[in-house]
Every structure is written in C-alpha cells, then in structure tokens.
Write a protein that binds this DNA or RNA. Structure first.
Lengths: 204, 204
DNA sequence: TAGAAAACTATCCATTCGGATAGGTTTCCT
DNA sequence: AGGAAACCTATCCGAATGGATAGTTTTCTA
C-alpha cells in the first residue's frame, strides 16, 4: 500500500512513517511541503492515500487540498491536522477528501483510519463530527462588557427589563441603559432584533 | 472474525451473511430478533462485532442496544437500520455503539465498515452525519392561520407592529390582535419570546 | 496617582406594547 | 341558509420600552 505523507513538522512526519513502515504492508513516502508533495505525485506511481497537513507551507487553507485533488484523477487525498475546525473538515469532505485525521488520534486508530481510507471509504472521527460546534469568544462577545452579556442573556430568554433587573439584582433603569448600549453595539433597532442577533451569533 | 447479525428481515440477513462468508475471513452467525441474539451472545464465544437492526422485535428503540451493550463487557455492538434519524444515531454512538450501518450502504463499503468496527473503531457514514437535519412542515405551522404566519414572519425580522401593519397593508390594532393570538398559540409571554420560539422551531 | 472605562442609579418623556372588549366582513362547510 | 372560523377594525388603558441627560462609584491601567 503506497502512502504519501506531507507535513512540515519533522518529528510527526518521521514518527508516522516509521510507524506505518513497521506494520509491513506499507510503502511510505514523505514531503515537507505542498510543492514537493505535488512533485512526487506527478513523478511517481499512483498512491493509495495522500495525507496533507492543513497548516503546511503552500496549502493556503483548503486551496491546497483542492489543487491536489484536481492534480490527477482518483487519487485519495486526506487532511491531517491538529487544529482544524469542524467547519473546515466538513468543507474538505464535501470537496471530495478521503477523510480527516486529527494528529491527536491514537497510533492504532490512525493505522485503521489510513487503511480504511485507502480502501476507498471516507473517514472522520465520529466524536469530532458530532461534537457541538463551540463558539469560543465570538467576535461579538468581545465588544460587550460582562454586565452587558448578563443582560443580553436575560434578553435571549425573553425576559422583561424588570425581570432581568430582579435576576441580576439591579434597578430597572440600569438594565434599560445596558439595553440601549446593546442595541448600539449589536446594531439592533429594538429588543427583539437584539435577541435574534444574539441567537444568530450563537451566543447562549 | 466472528460476526453476529440480528435482523428480522430474512432476505437482508441472509444476503449479508452470504456476502460476508464469501469474503472468507468471516464466521457469521445470525438471529431473527433481539432475544435470540442475546441467547447467542451469552452462550457462545466472544463476537468481534454484533450488528443489531433498530426495528427488529425486542429492540424497543435504543433500549435494546443499551441492554446488549451492558450484557457483557467490551463486545462491539453496532446499529443497522434503514430509517434511523441522525438524532438516534448520535444517541447510539454516545451510548457506546461501535457504529451505525445504513442498509443502503454499498456491499463493498459495508464490508469495509464491518472490518473497521471489528478493529475497535467507531463508524458512521460521513455524509449521513453531516447532512443538515431537515425540519419538514413543523407542527407549529399547522396551528397558525395564513395571516398569523405573515405577522409572525415580520416579528422574526424584528419589525414593530406599525411596520408589520404597513407591510401587510393592515391597521396596527389588527396586527396587535394577531400578536395576542400568536402569544397564546406559541405559549409566549411577549414578542421577543415569540420571535425566539419561532426561530427555534425553524420557521423562517 | 490621574484618567479612562465600566458599571450603576436616577428622572423625564414620548412611543410602543399587551390585554380587554365590542363589534363587522368574508369564506367555507354542513 | 346557518354557523363556525378566519380576518379585520376600533377604542381604552395600564405597563413596558426606548431615548436623552446627568451624575456617582468602582476598577483597571498608564
């Protein structure tokens, strides 16, 4: 089984090559960046699977994957990355990638995944794909103060100013002030719009 | 590799058994419902993989899967179904299922999936898992009249009653009446809640 | 330590909302 | 033809909301 591994991280690349070679059954080649990987693909026989690191030189995001897929018919190309978001992975799979292999995968599972993909199937870690997309520090959230976030949270629960004031142990006028500030920051005309915008942004 | 297939559909069960046996390498057993499958599991040696049909007698939804998983340590149990929703599949995987195999899967892929799962990995068809969950004609929509839907649509755009009235060529009091009716039907306390509920339900 | 930013309280006022009540059309089904 | 349901208009009133303005306290940082 002929495998090509392209990753600019020497340690990881060498470890992977050694591990696969140790299984027998594998003929591994490696490249340090996308251009040299493409040279190998064009120069050599067909690979059963090509693993591309998402963050290596020349990749330019999913563009490198797209170009590699187009390079030459039917070769199986998978993504390899430590930090890819689910969105990226889904896009890659839609583009026709053979799969996605996180660098954190146990060696044994990585071996199984590689075999599986070389077999023509599509692979991605289930738990990774089903995990709820977290929205860590949404751009909007940065613009809001702590208090404003609390008020906004109450708003997205459909509460009135009075209720929010009671819950946060504030007076109603104060809540109204925060509301006004929120409308400005969220570019909303009224509380309903503000609530919808907050939900849309994935806050709460 | 010892595989147990439990499905009340004779044709599918026999086809699968024949196909797997034809690969050599497999020792297949089969059961027509959950109770007889459980008897086999308890009486015989360890299986490398157990395939359970979701809709067979004795399953009672995911309950049968749960009980089979608990039956005996470490046996790999996967779900087999033609109509499972993504929600069900995700629950099954969280319960510790080895995977989910749709009955529509091409024979070759099914073989790969079975091997993959027997190897200790978790499998589910990528395209099935990433597909957007469709919300076909939400129950809420049935309870609302045409006019109410139009008003609700305006509401979910954060418009004021006056704006909605203008857009629909109505008077404001009329819009307010529809609002009141909407709150009752949607079980909302105010316009913001109504808007959020409508969005939540996937309307508009 | 001075200044900025965040957070809070307060008052005034016009607008909007939400609820109740009382009707009037139109449309559709029996 | 009669009745129900949907749809519309209207008025009244109290409560909630949105905007403006003014000022205090706290907290963080340059």
């Amino acid at each position: 089984m002929r495998i090509l591994i392209a990753d600019d991280h020497d340690l990881l690349r060498d470890t992977l090559v050694l591990f696969l070679e140790a299984q027998g059954d594998f003929e591994t080649h490696s490249a340090i960046d996308l251009p040299s990987a493409q040279k190998l693909i064009e120069a050599q026989d067909r690979f059963d699977l090509i693993l591309l690191d998402l963050n290596m030189p020349g990749m330019n995001g999913l563009d490198g994957l797209k170009r590699t897929l187009a390079l030459n018919g039917g070769q199986r190309v998978a993504l390899l990355s430590g930090e890819a978001t689910r969105e990226i992975v889904e896009q890659a799979l839609e583009l026709g990638a053979a799969g996605f292999v996180p660098k954190t995968l146990p060696a044994k599972s990585m071996l199984n995944a590689v075999k599986f993909m070389a077999m023509g199937e599509q692979y991605a870690p289930i738990d990774f794909m089903t995990a709820v997309e977290e929205t860590p520090s949404h751009p909007l959230a940065d613009k809001l103060t702590q208090r404003e976030m609390q008020v906004l949270k109450g708003l997205t629960q459909g509460k009135s100013n009075k209720e929010i004031a009671r819950d946060l142990d504030l007076t109603e006028p104060t809540v109204k002030l925060h509301m006004k500030t929120l409308y400005r920051k969220l570019d909303a005309a009224n509380r309903t719009q503000a609530a919808l915008i907050a939900r849309e942004a994935g806050l709460f």
